[in-house]
């Protein structure tokens, strides 16, 4: 795999949320506004990149690798938990509003399957530079997924798009034009499941039609032969 392929895989091919279906808890809980998605994404990228770096660094020393082998999962969890706590403290100090609205889900990055999964499956077996690229790619892919879901939910549920702090795009005119009010269903918990379900269905439909086209092409090739 080249470095470019490694970087691009997290966006579509191996998107952690849409394809691997990992980290669904925060994806449903905090996607009520775009700002939350950005905040979560930044925290997540930081934790993932740092944990990938540290874990691949530890594993590059052969002696250390053998030493931690029996308790490696516990060691990884400790490292991830402390990175998460660092993010939490920095966020509480400098971005208190965002910290409040993300709530317990910052701490829960610790048990997010993506971080531990990447540590065990990728970072522990690859070089530091590859692991960093992997972390950035997966982190950005996850953030992109969060942004897509939160855009849909915030626009349909509230009629606004909050980019950061007071910077807000007000699109309620669209709803007024159609003589309806924003559908608050989409900001509720039930709406979260619905939006993720529909987005996944669209992904699956695109994949299905692509597969069908490929099959068709192969068939034609065979017929030509």
């Amino acid at each position: 795999m080249t470095k470019k392929e490694n970087f691009l895989k997290g966006f579509i091919k191996e998107n952690p949320l849409f394809v691997l279906l990992l980290g669904t808890c925060p994806a449903l809980a905090i996607t009520t506004s775009l700002e939350n998605a950005f905040g979560m994404g930044i925290a997540f990228i930081f934790v993932l990149v740092m944990s990938n770096t540290i874990i691949s660094l530890i594993n590059s020393f052969k002696k250390l690798k053998e030493l931690i082998q029996p308790v490696r999962i516990a060691v990884y969890i400790v490292i991830i938990a402390s990175l998460v706590t660092i993010v939490e403290m920095i966020m509480q100090a400098y971005l208190p509003d965002l910290y409040n609205s993300l709530g317990v889900f910052i701490s829960l990055i610790t048990v997010n399957c993506i971080v531990l999964g990447r540590a065990e499956a990728y970072a522990s077996q690859n070089t530091v530079s590859d692991s960093v690229i992997d972390g950035i790619s997966m982190g950005l892919g996850y953030t992109l997924a969060l942004i897509i879901i939160s855009l849909i939910r915030e626009f349909l549920g509230n009629g606004t798009i909050t980019i950061w702090g007071d910077l807000q795009i007000n699109l309620q005119g669209v709803f007024e034009f159609l003589h309806i009010t924003p559908i608050s269903f989409f900001t509720s918990s039930a709406g979260a499941f619905m939006v993720l379900g529909i987005v996944l269905a669209i992904m699956q439909a695109i994949k299905n039609s692509k597969d069908a086209k490929e099959k068709e092409a192969k068939k034609q090739e065979k017929e030509v032969k």
């Binding site: 308790v71 516990a74 060691v75 402390s82």
Partner: peptide
């Protein structure tokens, strides 16, 4: 192994 784990926990705790 227990010692290794506690050393890691200690380092992380100090860092925090």
């Amino acid at each position: 192994t227990g010692l290794v784990l506690s050393v890691f926990a200690l380092i992380c705790g100090l860092l925090l």
